[in-house]
Design a protein around this nucleic acid. Sequence first.
DNA 1: ACTCATTCTTGAACACGTTCAAAAATGAGC
DNA 2: GCTCATTTTTGAACGTGTTCAAGAATGAGT
Lengths: 220, 220
Amino acid sequence: MAAKSEQTRQLVADVALKMFREIGFEKTTMRAIAQEAGVSVGNAYYYFASKDELVQELYIQVQDEHAVVAAQALEGIQDLAGRLKAVLHTGVDVMSPYHQFGSDFIATAIRPSSPVNPFGEASTAAREASLAIFRSAVEGSSPAVAKKLRGDLPELLWLAYMGVALFWVYDRSEGQRRTRKLIDGAAPLVARGLSLAKIPGVSKVFDDVLGLVRSVKEDS
Amino acid sequence: MAAKSEQTRQLVADVALKMFREIGFEKTTMRAIAQEAGVSVGNAYYYFASKDELVQELYIQVQDEHAVVAAQALEGIQDLAGRLKAVLHTGVDVMSPYHQFGSDFIATAIRPSSPVNPFGEASTAAREASLAIFRSAVEGSSPAVAKKLRGDLPELLWLAYMGVALFWVYDRSEGQRRTRKLIDGAAPLVARGLSLAKIPGVSKVFDDVLGLVRSVKEDS
DNA sequence: ACTCATTCTTGAACACGTTCAAAAATGAGC
DNA sequence: GCTCATTTTTGAACGTGTTCAAGAATGAGT
């Protein structure tokens, strides 16, 4: 049965994630994971090509949870500021058990070669899932976001979310209070800033920003 | 004489930086550096407590060069957009010999524990030097930047510069063409965006952005 | 010239992530 | 039940960054 193999894989992943949470990334050695799971080091490597891939496992799990919790939090909230807050706060919520481990995660994630790199191919699925959350936040909001912004906004917000995550990693205040404050302050500001798009002089600047974003994205 | 000791230190640093440039970060092992420099591994560690500290040496050197080259490039340029371009382009210029090594550098730099972390204590001097460049870019520009923005703008631009550096690391286009394009496009947009501060409706949003930045910075 | 504390240098040793040849377990086909 | 290719498991071994006890070189004070 394929179940036995899958069971071992799950066991290793579970032990690893538990140890990441409880004793941190660096202290969780591959040898310790193997020992705790009752398998050999080589066996852990049979299922996960590197320690990074175990981090990817965590990343996927956290993203999945974010999707669920965010969807729930979005229910009944209409205004963009509120919807943004909901998505960002739940994002921080699901990450919080791993805060002490955050900087190692980011250091891992940021190398282009890493499977966890949020811009990379190996995490396309997780990124799409995360993007979908922001798309839903934007599309479901009323009053509606200006049509010309609607297409690119989710991606830009996702990018901003990466920034918030980075801020959170560095946030040493208790319970990451400062990150919460940043979210509460920034979300309404973004919403208000976007509403300025109606002003003619501002509108042109917005157009150029979007043009730049698109042109840089496509390379060319 | 203290010169002998300093000589060994310089030798190790020079060999290390040369190897970083020529064969990359990971292939440049401490053993290889020691051998190439004709000293023992332990001796290299006498002068640099970790491989990261050798990266810090590189960071400082690159920043110093940026300060010189940027100051030169700013001469004779009046408008903010042009001054921003000058600072950013020279920034990319001085980094370019290390592009292949960039992702390892960022991965190192991003951990709060690293001496190279741009937000950390160990690189206060380098950060101040870099901030000074942006301060000079802002203060020397004419037409002048709105008074209320002048104080915080350099720091925000420096932050944006960190973003550009991140973009550059990921930029796989030849000669990092896309980064150049981003700079050329974004600099005038920033300048134009700032000029919108005169519009009453926009002004209030700007005030709130500044207020948020300040309040998050101070913790509280 | 001779101390002797200080500075500098050495290389073996440690724990880590990772690899790999070999062995063990599994299961489909007969 | 036997065969044998495939999947799974093992643990020793490699190269890495880093540490450290020990020794060598240095130089100020006499």
